[in-house]
């Protein structure tokens, strides 16, 4: 595949929070039209990576290119122009609590287009229909369940038919049924819109079922990658630990600490 086939190109990406390195050199290529999962334990820098791709953070070193343009070198106006073609689903939906379901989904349309109100209504109802919540249009976000809120947020994220959709932990805190629904929606919407999806998650089983490619991140580096069928049978110790949900392995169960014997016998206090 040529460079043009990849919507997102990440090269040697580094990011430090103050003195603490979070990402230590990531290389990644996201092909157009695919659903790609980025997996790893909590706090491994997955969400940071997503924020770097969307331009919310600036990298310490390295570049993120979206459609050939370096995100970190863009002006504010150019970045906003790009973001109109990006959709992002936040971990808990991040719906506007003072707006109804309908107004939430209509929000990007009203802000970015001059369409007449009846056309906005039709478009909004179509997006809500796509996530199966056309009947819930008049509800307020506070009355929705977690799964429904996430679906409304998904409808809002795709309101402007984005070319790139990003998902931050879309499965967290959902019951198995809602989880399956969201997983299916992500797949369907991606294919229907001809978009590219990047999904940050630690839900292995659901991801293996629906994505095209998986990157594993640990301690700020890509440690493994591959298609779901390769991942399932992988001999790589990290992937094996993650997929089989083992407590200890390459990812240590213990937070780095001084030697236990030394600590308990008082040697460390001297």
């Amino acid at each position: 595949m040529s460079d043009d086939d990849f919507l997102v190109n990440i090269e040697n990406l580094r990011f430090d929070y103050g003195d603490r390195p979070v990402l230590r050199g990531i290389d990644m290529r996201i092909p157009r039209g695919r659903v790609v999962a980025i997996m790893g334990g909590s706090g491994c820098g997955k969400t940071t990576l997503l924020r770097l791709i969307s331009g919310q953070l600036r990298p310490t070193a390295g570049t993120v290119r979206v459609a050939g343009e370096a995100i970190s070198e863009m002006s504010h106006a150019r970045l906003y122009a790009f973001r109109r073609r990006m959709g992002m689903l936040f971990q808990f939906g991040a719906l506007f609590t003072d707006l109804s379901v309908f107004d939430n989904v209509a929000f990007p349309l009203r802000e970015h287009t001059d369409l007449p109100e009846d056309m906005i209504r039709d478009l909004t109802l179509m997006k809500l229909q796509a996530v199966g919540l056309r009947g819930a249009r008049d509800l307020m976000p506070s009355t929705l369940s977690g799964g429904m809120a996430r679906r409304v947020a998904l409808a809002r994220a795709i309101a402007l038919d984005p070319a790139l959709i990003m998902y931050d932990e879309p499965f967290t805190g959902l019951d198995p049924i809602s989880l399956g629904v969201i997983g299916q929606l992500i797949r369907q919407l991606n294919d229907a819109l001809g978009a590219t999806s990047i999904m940050v998650t630690h839900d292995v089983q659901e991801s293996l079922r629906m994505v095209d490619y998986i990157y594993f991140i640990s301690e700020g580096r890509v440690v493994a990658e591959g298609r779901p069928e390769d991942v399932r049978d992988s001999a790589d110790p990290f992937v094996h630990q993650f997929v089989a949900a083992k407590a200890d392995g390459p990812v240590s169960y213990h937070f780095p600490a001084p030697d236990m014997a030394a600590e308990f016998l008082g040697a460390a206090h001297v």
């Binding site: 969307s54 919310q56 906003y80 122009a81 973001r83 109109r84 990006m86 992002m88 936040f90 971990q91 808990f92 991040a94 719906l95 506007f96 609590t97 003072d98 929000f107 990007p108 802000e111 970015h112 947020a153 809002r156």
Partner: peptide, 21 residues
């Protein structure tokens, strides 16, 4: 309170991601 809660629930970030300042 309103703006603080919008920030805490990532609504401001979501807005920024929708290219709305």
């Amino acid at each position: 309170a309103e703006i603080g809660l919008m920030k805490a629930t990532e609504q401001l970030k979501a807005m920024d991601m929708m290219a709305v300042d």
